[in-house]
Design a protein around this nucleic acid. Sequence first.
DNA 1: GCAGTAAACGGACTTCACCCCGCTTACATT
DNA 2: AATGTAAGCGGGGTGAAGTCCGTTTACTGC
Lengths: 198, 198
Amino acid sequence: MDLTSRPPRADASRNRNHLLATARTMLTDHGPDRITMDALADCSGLGKGTVFRHFGTRSGIFQALLDDNERAFQEGVLSGPPPLGPGASPRERLIAYGQARIRFLLEHHDIARAALDGRQPAPAGSATPLSRIHIRMLLTQLDLGPVDLDLLAIQLTAALDGPLLLYLSKSELDATTCPTEQRLTTGWQNLIHRICHP
Amino acid sequence: MDLTSRPPRADASRNRNHLLATARTMLTDHGPDRITMDALADCSGLGKGTVFRHFGTRSGIFQALLDDNERAFQEGVLSGPPPLGPGASPRERLIAYGQARIRFLLEHHDIARAALDGRQPAPAGSATPLSRIHIRMLLTQLDLGPVDLDLLAIQLTAALDGPLLLYLSKSELDATTCPTEQRLTTGWQNLIHRICHP
DNA sequence: GCAGTAAACGGACTTCACCCCGCTTACATT
DNA sequence: AATGTAAGCGGGGTGAAGTCCGTTTACTGC
């Protein structure tokens, strides 16, 4: 498959893991704002250039952390038990996927937000493509007449991620007065029902 | 109404206008990337502190430019002829609003993108609130049973703005092979039909 | 006009993301 | 083991965002 590219050097992957671990420690200790390229370099005892080599940009750090967290989530989507995994109807899976993603994004909210990059076109390194592709796939199975499925998938991805990542501030999401997660999940379910029914 | 706050000082509003005019010139001459706080200060002959006083952040400049452009658009929405303005059915108005906003965002794409701020919760200073509130208002008139209208309005706002501002790259939007505006407009219309029908 | 004051101005200063490039080191080959 | 080399490492350098605070200036009441 990749005969051209060689496996990463031992010190490289060791340093990468060490950087991610250090970043997690800093995150739980002081929150995302205090994670700067210099600070991460200092705390890990490595050079600044090394940090950039591994993550490219500041938000790249958070994208890597998010990727890490997302592995289990992806597993559940691709080969876990229904309705999230294969086996249920596409509509059920779509609803379950939204619910799972809402939970995931709420749980890792600070990382997900920090992974956004103003200059980048699409949010969240490899995270969002999964959403888009998976939703696209489930829509195909739904047999909605002659529709621009690519665009609909993007619209639904935006409707799912947008509120959590862009439109609702942290204080609004933390509002314990109304159960946010429940509200978002129900809203998503409602949206899918309306999309599917006619 | 605002007895507490006094009108802005003459020099302040003069400088503000001058800064916006300078920013527009720089924008058409060199594109958005070359607009930095220092550059704008130098080109306008004012101090950097003044630029920050007026716009707060770099993206604030673009938000102000967008606000400026949006005045005519808002006028059309609030008191122009139907179906964009009042007079048509809420469903027609919702579709017309989407179409108008898509056109607006495509026309001012570079400004709108630059107005996004990674660290800020909601995109586009006062622009998006209008979308959200207007959509919310039209949804109310639609008599969709017992639905969380606030959330639905946010979801639809995200579905409308997201593709243009976040998910589609500039090259994808410029694709002259398929008429992007037509595609987006049709997609929005389809979405609204599905939301409304049942 | 004139003094008082709150707002606006300006630019030096700090911090941070990101670049660059000479140096070092892991791995392959013999 | 010795050697070649490409990948990885390090940290000083640069440009731009955003802060601070002393100075200046437009308005207010006399």
